[in-house]
Design a protein around this nucleic acid. Structure first.
Lengths: 233, 233
DNA sequence: CGGCGAGTTGAACGTAATCAATTGTCGTGG
DNA sequence: CCACGACAATTGATTACGTTCAACTCGCCG
């Protein structure tokens, strides 16, 4: 059981649509759980699945072809909602890219709760539509963009999402941030190989557009140039 | 104004969630419209947008990079719902791949109607989640699959969707169907070029897996082989 | 110091893109 | 009905981008 009133993502998660008394009920259904980096919260095709709100950390959704190839189809941050509600088994695997904390519900309990709370469903709908837009944006990246453009796009996106994610009221972007994933994962997000990722990094680094003080840190020197490279007008 | 009671997609579209009297109200808001192949129903960033149910025909959603590159991010069939409800402008362009007929609503009128009909929102949510799954499936295709695998996957998908689309109660697949799009569009769906598409077609045709009597018709001879080529276990 | 994993760099290869020519198909008008 | 033109699709030759395979570097921890 969780104490929603002290939850750090209380105002940003889908729970924000609920009245205090409704939240009481929901809190009895959910429970907090810590996940270590690399650990899998939810397997594709899992028959006893869960849904969850992310309290802290970064999770990935991935689809795997039978021969081992993996595509990361979404990266999710604090206050995001993961899992496949309403009867269907999750078609993708959910695992932690960093140590994380989530608020978990069994799907059945969540489903029946959602059934009686249109506001929650409405929130979920909005989120799904936003997710859908993001997924399609990424489809264009995977279908049409070059390796350099992909890397640049990812960096822009990360600096964007990590900054709002930090709960800062300002909507400015971060020019320095930590990559929540390693090179292999970047490759699996962008539909590239680890080597190509590395080469493109050094490429734009040598152009002075970014700096990479260590393997996890990114500094954006020339945001406008980076955006240009990303192919965003 | 439309007469919903005689609508051919009445039972499959999101409208199916509504009571007769509610449908009455909705029918006053919508109006039928015919679209010719190639015509655009909705431009990305359009300030006066609409949403619509597809009554007949095939539409595409596409995203375009400023330099002209186009990625088709979704192909939608009869009874599908298109457009971006709830305030946001549509991030993608919606146009007709075949002559089509749609039931159009202004977004504002649809939004306020939806606000008072949780069942409709629920239906929309389910659809969005399904769309999201499909989009992510396609992301793995674009990120990880080879040209041959992509073509094979598309053919499987099309034969699947076109058959249920034909309103046939049987859930069997079609082994012969018409492509609703030309080679360029296939390329833009699969993240390939027109030439590669053509080459892969002749490739699997020479293997006897499919036949192409004319440029629009596809006959699947060896479904299991085709599935194998598609990389679906 | 040694060993290990992650990341970078290099060289050769391969798949799909590009450029270019040809064939095929459809619609139109003679 | 056929000839023609325009466009769609196929096929071929070449190129280029990213992959693959391999060696090497770096940082970290025992």
């Amino acid at each position: 059981m969780s104490d929603c009133s002290t939850c750090v993502v209380r105002n940003r998660a889908i729970c924000a649509s609920l009245e205090p008394d409704e939240l009481q009920v929901l809190s009895k259904l959910g429970r907090k759980r810590k996940i270590k980096r690399g650990e899998t919260l939810l397997w594709e095709g899992d028959p006893a699945p869960v849904v969850a709100n992310i309290i802290d950390g970064v999770l990935k959704l991935s689809m795997n072809l039978h021969d081992g190839r993996e595509q990361i189809v979404s990266v999710m941050y604090a206050s995001d909602f993961v899992g496949r509600p309403f009867g269907k088994e999750s078609p993708y695997r959910v695992s932690a890219m960093t140590d994380a904390e989530v608020c978990v519900f069994t799907r059945s309990s969540f489903d029946s709760f959602a059934k009686e709370h249109p506001d929650l469903q409405n929130k979920l709908l909005h989120r799904s539509l936003d997710e859908l837009d993001r997924a399609r944006e990424w489809m264009t990246l995977l279908g049409k963009k070059s390796a350099t453009e992909r890397i640049a796009t990812l960096l822009i996106e990360l600096s964007d999402r990590l900054s709002v994610d930090g709960c800062s009221p300002t909507s400015r972007y971060l020019d320095r941030f930590e990559l929540p994933m390693d090179r292999q994962q970047i490759a699996d997000i962008l539909g590239l190989t680890i080597e190509t990722v590395s080469r493109q990094f050094t490429r734009i680094r040598k152009q002075g557009i970014i700096d990479l003080p260590d393997r996890r840190t990114v500094i954006i020197n020339e945001r406008s140039l980076l955006k240009a490279v990303a192919g965003v007008a």
